[in-house]
């Protein structure tokens, strides 16, 4: 029976929501664990990968993993309310059981980043997959160089992942800069889109790899600026999303020209995206 389950790529595993962290009015982080201890023991993932999440009667959707495998025992899914499934997921609380299968997709190329300075640029929910790789890098001690995090939100009240941000802001090996598009009373931080942080953050392309995730318009402008600063396309890495059904390279939905996001991505370098219909 167990053998048969492993062989069927479409069968989810039952998983329980242990905790729900409200990140902002639209984003919640679901702390999950598989019900079957054997699955918990055998399930391993890398930053950048995603799982297909099932909710009864709502089908499945791909959700990127926002926790790091260096902190085993539970997996975090940070989800912004957007469509049917994410709306249904947001109604669930601790103790609710969902389905999960995976992990899928090509992760961030972490082995190749050793010794490099890491520049993370995120907008809104785009910090979810980067949170995984940021915490992964922080847990590896000296393996990576200087870590710079630039995080843009619409308004101060939209700033998500506050407990992570306060940890990052405290760490001496991390420079963490926040900005908002639109200030609210009480905000004395930076105002402006994330690309207005370059100067303050003292970005240099030397020995640096940039990892980006955010809305298409942010990616476009950040890519253009990084190119201007001298970043080669190979040193700019982003993660893509598409409508997806199978997650394993068969159903065809997540095509981006010749690539499938689920198996060729979701992580791509800017060099790999050149010439493709990205947005």
């Amino acid at each position: 029976m167990h053998q048969a389950r492993i062989a069927n790529v479409y069968l989810p595993h039952s998983a329980v929501i242990r905790e729900v962290i409200v990140e902002n009015s639209l984003i919640k982080t679901f702390v999950t664990q598989f019900l079957d201890q054997d699955v918990n023991a055998s399930f391993s993932y890398q930053p950048g990968q995603f799982v297909m999440v099932s909710i009864p009667h709502h089908g499945e959707a791909p959700i990127s993993i926002s926790s790091t495998p260096t902190r085993p025992g539970e997996m975090h899914l940070s989800v912004r309310v957007c469509g049917h499934l994410t709306t249904a997921l947001h109604e669930l609380g601790p103790g609710a059981v969902i389905g999960m299968r995976g992990p899928y997709g090509r992760p961030f190329p972490l082995a190749g980043l050793a010794g490099k300075n890491l520049l993370f640029v995120a907008g809104g929910i785009g910090l979810a997959p980067l949170r995984s790789v940021i915490n992964y890098a922080l847990d590896q001690g000296e393996k990576y160089g200087k870590k710079t995090i630039l995080y843009g939100s619409r308004r101060p009240s939209d700033i998500a992942f506050r407990s992570d941000l306060s940890v990052w802001q405290e760490r001496p090996d991390v420079a963490c800069h926040l900005t908002v598009d639109e200030a609210q009373p009480g905000w004395d931080g930076h105002v402006g889109v994330v690309t207005t942080l370059w100067e303050q953050a003292e970005i240099s392309f030397r020995e640096t790899v940039a990892l980006l995730c955010g809305p298409p318009v942010m990616i476009k402008f950040v890519l253009a600026d990084l190119r201007r600063m001298g970043f080669p396309d190979e040193a700019v890495i982003t993660t893509m999303e598409r409508h997806m059904k199978c997650g394993v390279g068969i159903c065809g939905h997540c095509h981006m020209d010749k690539t499938l996001i689920c198996t060729d991505g979701p992580v791509f370098s800017a060099a790999e995206l050149a010439g493709l219909h990205v947005f």
Partner: peptide, 8 residues
């Protein structure tokens, strides 16, 4: 042509 959808 083998593209498919999955629904509940």
């Amino acid at each position: 042509c083998t593209c498919f959808s999955i629904t509940d």
